[in-house]
Structures are given as C-alpha cells and as structure tokens.
Design a protein around this nucleic acid. Sequence first.
DNA 1: GTCTATACTTCGATAGAC
DNA 2: GTCTATCGAAGTATAGAC
Lengths: 199, 199
Amino acid sequence: MVVKRRLGTESARNRQLLVEAAERLMVEEGAAAITSRKVAEKAGLKMQLVYYYFHTMDDLIVEVMREHAAKRLKGFVRALAAKDPFKALWEMNRDRSSANFNTELLALANQRERVRAELVTRACEFRALQIEAVDRLLAERGVDREQVPAGAIVTIIGALTRAMAQDRAYGVDDGYDEAVALVHKALEWLAAKEATSQQ
Amino acid sequence: MVVKRRLGTESARNRQLLVEAAERLMVEEGAAAITSRKVAEKAGLKMQLVYYYFHTMDDLIVEVMREHAAKRLKGFVRALAAKDPFKALWEMNRDRSSANFNTELLALANQRERVRAELVTRACEFRALQIEAVDRLLAERGVDREQVPAGAIVTIIGALTRAMAQDRAYGVDDGYDEAVALVHKALEWLAAKEATSQQ
DNA sequence: GTCTATACTTCGATAGAC
DNA sequence: GTCTATCGAAGTATAGAC
C-alpha cells in the first residue's frame, strides 16, 4: 500500500474531466454511483484511466471534495459582500445541490476513513470562517455577543439548512418556513432586548 | 418481479435474528454493511436464509425500519409522560444510536426507492405526533401558538438534534451547547413576551 | 426450513502492449 | 498516456436436494 508504482499526472485535461464527472454523479445519483466504471463512462473515457490519474477511488473522491470546498469558499466570500449578508449566508447554506452533496459525503464518511478526515477538516475550516464573519456582523449591529454568540447562530442556521436540504431531497419540507420565521423573530427580539438593556 | 415463487415465513425465530443483525449492522457499520452475506454472518446463519425470509434486501431493510419506528414510538410515549416533557423530547431526539440510524437511512433512501417511501411515511407520521404533543404542551403553558407555532419548535429541535448527531458521528460537536442555550433562552423570552403582551 | 451449489453482475485494481 | 485483457472479491438472487 505504501509503495505505488504507477504514475499520476497533475493538471491534465482528462483528470479534470474525471473529477467533474464524479462531482456530477455525487449530486445526481448519490455517492454510491461513484465507481471507476461509471465515472469514466460519464467522462467519456476508459475505466482504467481513473487508476492512471488516481491511485485509488479514495484519492478521486478526496480531490472532488477539495474542488467542491474551494467553490464553496468563493461563494461564501461573495455572500459576505452582499447588501444583506445574513440573508445571503442563509440562501447560500440552503443551496440544494451543495447540501445534497454534503448529505452524500456524510454517508461516505461512515465508510471511508480518508473521506471522514477530509470532511472534518473542511467543516471546521468553513465553520471558523462563518463564525468570524457572523461575529463581525453582530458587532457592527451592536448585538451583545455574550448573549447571542456567533457560534450559536452559525450552528442553528447550519443545522436548519442541512436538515431542510436533506428533507427536501426526499420530498418533505414541512415546517421550515415556520421555523425560519421563528428564528428571525427570535433574533430580532434578542437584538432589541440587548439594545434596550444596554441603555 | 411481480410474481414471487419462494416462501417467506412470518414470525419465525431466524427471521427475527436476521432483522436484529441488520439493525445492529446499520448502527455499527453503516447501511452499506447490510448485505445478505454480512447480515447472515452476524446472525450466525447461512446467507441463503436471508432470501428465504425476505424476497429482496429491500424487504429486509424495510422490515428493520418498521421495527425501529415502533421502538421509537414507544420511547416517544414514554417521554411525554415525563415530568419535563420538553427536556425528555430533546433528550430522546438526541439519542445517538437512533440518530445515527437515521443518518444511514438518509443515505439509503437516495439509492432505494422503497426505503425513501417508507422513510417519508414514518417521518411524517412521527412529525405529526410530535407537533400534536408539543402544541398541547404549549397550550398548557399558555403560550400563544400563533407567535410560537409547535411546528416551528419541532422543526428546530429536530434539525438541531439531527445535525448534532451527524456531526458527532465523525467527532465534531462544537457549537451545539451554545446553540441549545440560545434556543432555550429564546423560547423563554418568547413565552414571557407573549405572557406580558396578553395582560 | 435449511443446505449445497451456482449463475450472473459489478466492483477495485493491476499487468503489460502500444 | 491510453489501450486490451484479466484477477479476485463481493454482491444479489435462484434452483434443487434433503
């Protein structure tokens, strides 16, 4: 396992085709559909090329995760620059294909140790970024972050959007409008309470 | 596919062994580990017996889901009878193995139509029960259910517990204590606000 | 009800020619 | 870099003897 004989070539055209095919399979048919044969077929290539560019299927999947995380990060930066960053963050988090992607990753992570490790790394990294950004937003709006910590908001929004995306994937989205309305209301009231209690 | 020739026997000892083995595999090794060979091995039986008691693997899995749902329902009724039903509901929802079980089901549902159908049926059924129960609890406490609808609370608690269980499964539980504290605080304030605004 | 034996499929991965 | 050819493991499912 340690010594690998075959070549892996970086930044070649076919390699990129394979990664993109795998990413599409993940969203469209689920992680279970990412097999060497299906990925190659979707990319219009021969199955053996998968093993030319990646030593194992794990390597392919980890690469897909990296590229997906990079895209997500760009979207995050864009959201922060929007007029209403909270809304933009919310919308971004509830993006369907991205959330679907994450659901599949959760399943994969239960079977593949390397996927689990990569998932944890990316999740913590992204979470830290989100907390930092939300904390700054709260400070700008004069909210007491001891009463309403950024970590809590990020966690609640993340949980709601993730659960909603999962439920929608099999055709259920009851309750989320109500829940979101309640969260908004609660955040407003909390902010107002803090504002008045400081005066 | 429609006509099935072989026999399936109800309520036999080995059948129950197989269902229990499958359920343990689901929690311990993930849904992907539920194969005819592994289930039989875990049950100490021959692989072919799986196909004697269940026409297909889908049938086995659906049976596992049914028995799991039945257990869950019993736990729910028990939680409602507790001194602090809200807390009991929360604790029940965050039960690890049950939540883990659900995470695996989500993945399976993306691949197997019958699992998806069964999952939706059980989820809606359970959700309706929870809403009914929470609504009654809110009424007893004099909370205005127009401002704080039971559906929203059930959704938020469900999303938080599900996300927390998923994250914990791969070793992350940052933020949930904060989030839960904020939810508790928000619920209290909402209730208080309603109480005063009614007077 | 349970066993032996087996058909068929798909998977990950590799060897070696070109 | 890409192809033909191939292995061995594991999966679902069935036939038929006992």
